[in-house]
């Protein structure tokens, strides 16, 4: 039996591979298959949130803020429930970050509000004395790029089968609508107006009404979505 293997090095190599890979197979594959699924509450980002996510990436928020709450008491006390793999299912790429110059933001939507974010991004030390975070005043005038965000959403919908326009939880309603660019844009503007009104800054409301979504509004929509 083994003489045959010794005469056939290719099949010998296959056999060696199977034996060595076995432990990996039983330890990694079943767990991976389970953990990599989206958690039940995970939903794709709406157009405005996705645009905000692109602002987050563009301004390198992830250089100072992580989005990964580790399972330690000291972290869950401060930031909330530890993060699960499946929560990042629609993050492309995930923004775990590796350095916490600022606090973790993975569940910031649970304990901050739109007006707080607006005050904080305009002048961080006005709400957090001693904060070393820089002000991001340009976000209040820069206009959000909805077209790129729509392109990203449509791409992940078509290529990775991200469930836009689908009934995910079986209640007969579409959970995260995307549709055509015009439809998506209309919804994004309605959403943006709501967020702008929550910030209680008239300049932001006026901008949205004038057909331009300031970057800060998209970013706040994204941050509020992080729960």
């Amino acid at each position: 039996m083994f003489g045959w293997l010794e005469r056939n090095p290719f099949f010998f190599a296959v056999g060696v591979f199977v034996v060595i890979a076995f432990a990996g197979l039983i330890e990694i594959v079943p767990d991976f298959a389970q953990q990599s699924r989206p958690v039940v509450t995970a939903k794709p980002y709406s157009l405005l949130e996705l645009a905000g996510r692109q602002v987050y990436i563009k301004d390198s928020c992830n250089a100072c803020h992580s989005q990964l709450i580790r399972p330690f008491k000291s972290e869950t006390d401060r930031y909330g429930m530890y993060s699960l793999n499946g929560e990042y299912a629609y993050d492309r790429p995930f923004l775990w970050g590796s350095k916490r110059t600022g606090p973790d933001l993975h569940r910031v939507g649970n304990y901050r509000t739109s007006d707080w974010h607006a005050n904080h991004m305009w002048d961080p030390t006005s709400v957090v004395p001693g904060s070393i975070m820089p002000a991001y005043k340009h976000m209040f005038t820069n206009v959000t790029d909805l077209e790129t965000a729509y392109a990203e959403a449509l791409t992940v919908k078509k290529v990775f089968n991200v469930p836009y326009d689908k009934d995910m939880d079986g209640d007969g309603k579409v959970d995260v609508p995307l549709g055509s660019y015009e439809e998506a844009k209309k919804r994004a503007f309605e959403y943006a107006l709501r967020v702008a009104e929550e910030t209680k800054r008239q300049d932001l409301v006026d901008m949205v009404k004038a057909g331009k979504i300031p970057e800060i509004v998209a970013l706040i929509a994204y941050l509020n979505r992080l729960k």
């Binding site: 005050n119 006005s126 709400v127």
Partner: peptide
């Protein structure tokens, strides 16, 4: 830790915020 980011470290609500 939990309240002062909005209510201010002295609890006065940061000028009406």
């Amino acid at each position: 830790v939990q309240c002062s980011p909005c209510h201010g470290i002295d609890g006065t609500g940061i000028e009406g915020k």
